[in-house]
Amino acid sequence: MALLWTVPLLPGGFYFYLGLVVAIYAIAALGLQVMVGLAGQLSLGHAAFLGIGAYTAILLEKGVGLSFLPALAAAGLLMAQLIRLSGVYFKIATFGFGIVVYQILTNWSSLTGGHVGVRAIPPIVILNLQITTRVGLFAVEMAALTIIYVLLVRLCHGRIGRALRAIGQNETAARSMGIRVDRYRMIVITLGSGIAGLAGAFLPHLMRFLSPESFTWYDSLLVLIMITVGGLGSLPGAIVGAALLTIVPEYLRDFAQYKMLAFGVLLIVSMILMPAGVAGVLRAALIGTLRRGGRVQ
């Protein structure tokens, strides 16, 4: 997180752009991490949540004239009420839901603009202050990422977090211990999808354009790979995975046709050789270094 905050100090606009993208996908990955890595509620259509959040925020900003914060809240609240299924039905429903949302965004051209998309994206307005520069956008994104991260850390170490971990490890055992599984599952689905909707609301302000092509099944798979490679169940892992899967492909553009193959191999290798993800490897290396230095008993 601290490294991300230093991105504006790097030379050149390319790294700054990557930092903006990483911040958005890190927010989305945190939402999916809570659902999958913490509570075991696998979502196969997470990009649909980003898409609805993005279109809700922009259409409210353009059509109703809401400022960014109310539009952002509306996007999150809308996302929080979409999925109310559980178990394997939830997994299948999220995959189908992603396809349905993409088709709606593509074909409801009178509302979404279809493949033409939404142009003339208005600037972010917060407390009558217009955010018109990329530096300002980056500050807003990072503020949102930092707040979400801190709140999720506190949640994960509290009573709700312990209940969600119990559900993710063994739902039957959790129910037998008196944990209200359905209630907590609804909490985590609401939270994860809502965070994804908030992340999606930033995308059009970065791209200055909004189209359904940003919310396909590929994007859902990408966010899932981010949290898996970074480390399932690890909040730092979600950010590390988002950074890796955003930055590395930019340096492998000559092999773009092999991107999906590379992602598949990376996913398999990480699950076999790094079950705790990249974040787990980094943490183990740091602890080992500190122990060799006599700082950790």
Rank of each mutant, 00 (worst) to 15 (best):
Q257F: 15
G178C: 06
I27Y: 01
Q130K: 15
L152P: 07
V34N: 05
A173M: 10
G117Q: 05
V153W: 10
L129I: 12
F202R: 00
R175L: 10
L151T: 09
S109A: 14
R208H: 15
G230K: 01
G98F: 07
A174Q: 02
L60F: 13
L145F: 06
G293W: 15
A173V: 11
R162A: 07
F202M: 00
G161A: 06
L235E: 05
T6N: 08
Y15R: 09
V64F: 15
P70L: 05
L111F: 15
I225R: 00
L244I: 13
G293E: 12
A74Y: 01
I58P: 00
V22M: 09
I179C: 10
M186A: 10
D182G: 14
V153S: 04
I239S: 06
L82R: 07
G288E: 07
A196I: 05
G233C: 07
G168S: 04
L9T: 06
M271Q: 13
A120K: 14
M35T: 03
Y184C: 03
G277F: 04
Y55Q: 00
R295G: 13
S86K: 11
T106F: 09
A163L: 01
I52R: 01
L235D: 09
R295F: 15
A242V: 04
I195W: 10
G288V: 00
